[in-house]
Computed example of a mutant assay.
Amino acid sequence: MIEMQTPPPPALGTRVARLNAVAKLLAIVVLTVPLILTLDVVSAGVALALELALFPFAGLGWGAFWRRTWIVWLLAPLTGLTIALYGETSGQIYAEWFVVRISEGSLALALATMLRVLAIALPSVVLFATVDPTDLADGLAQVLRLPARFVLGALAGLRMVGLFMDDWRALELARRSRGVADRGRIRRFLGMAFALLVLSIRRGTKLAVAMEARGFGAPGPRSWARESRFGVAEWLFVALGAAVAAVAVASASLLGTWNFILGPG
């Protein structure tokens, strides 16, 4: 007698990766909007710490995490460096030369800016790394009730990005085979960009005609091949994003560092 074994439940990371794409979008919105409205070290630091603790459960391996987020880790300190050198001067001045003035206030502002960039950019990159464009389009049209014509057009344009990269590499190889890409790097880039622009316009026109011929722009309600469901798990995920934002805001308010950037003065 063969014993039937129940398959183990999927890992938490897998379940998070399978969540509705709209839930991830809403979680990012409720998490980042409070951070956009303030510029202080505490709220950004608390939010970043909580996000780093939750990232292992996002369904993205550490190798993929670093490959996708290295540019954020590189640009955030550069942003802070710019603020430290040229930001608003306040408190004790540590160094001054020409237009560069490093002060106590500019350093605090630089640290807050760097943490803020990391806290806003990292969850956006990590969560959308596991989002399929078609699933996102289904969710936008069926859950958020956005116009189908707009959603399908945006999806078709997003699907063309990969083809543009292939076209760029094909143009580069073709120009090299003709011996016109050996010198003049700026001139070569401008020529290839113009050629790609012409090619993209032609391809976009053909795609629009093909979609119209297949009834994508027809009036009235349309059917969808896959149903986009938004259930309890998705609401809990959005609530988790709101909870992280609430803890960050509450921490900044209790410590007196909350700095509403849209306020007077």
Rank of each mutant, 00 (worst) to 15 (best):
A154W: 07
G91E: 04
L146P: 02
L118K: 08
G80L: 05
S90K: 00
V100N: 04
R101A: 13
D135E: 15
L115R: 10
A119E: 08
L85D: 01
G87C: 01
S124C: 10
Y94H: 11
R101C: 12
R149T: 14
L85E: 01
S90G: 14
T134Y: 11
Q142C: 06
L118D: 03
T89Q: 07
Q92D: 08
V143H: 07
L81Q: 02
A121S: 14
V143T: 15
L85Y: 00
L144A: 15
A95G: 07
L85R: 00
L107F: 04
A141K: 12
I120Y: 01
A108M: 13
I120W: 01
A141E: 14
G139P: 13
A137T: 09
I93Q: 05
I120A: 01
V126P: 02
V126E: 04
G105C: 06
L146Y: 06
I93A: 14
I102R: 03
A110C: 12
L115C: 08
L115K: 10
A95W: 15
T113D: 06
R101P: 02
R101Y: 01
A141H: 13
A119W: 08
L152E: 14
F150S: 11
F98V: 12
P147N: 07
R149V: 12
I102T: 09
L140W: 07
Q142G: 06
L111F: 14
A112Q: 11
A84C: 02
G139E: 13
A137M: 12
F128Q: 09
A129V: 04
G105S: 05
V99Y: 06
L81R: 00
V131E: 11
F128N: 12
L81D: 05
T79C: 13
A148Q: 11
I102M: 09
F128M: 15
L127Q: 08
L85K: 00
L81E: 04
G91F: 05
L136W: 10
F128R: 05
A112D: 11
L155P: 11
F150M: 14
V100S: 06
I93M: 08
L122G: 01
P133R: 03
L144T: 10
Q92L: 11
L109C: 00
A110S: 15
L146G: 03
L146T: 05
Q92N: 02
L111N: 08
L118Q: 13
L155H: 09
R149Y: 00
F98H: 11
I102F: 08
S90N: 02
S103A: 14
D138C: 09
D132C: 07
L111K: 08
W97Y: 13
I83S: 05
V126N: 04
V126A: 04
L144M: 14
P133L: 06
T89G: 00
G91H: 02
S106K: 02
G153Q: 09
P147A: 04
A148K: 13
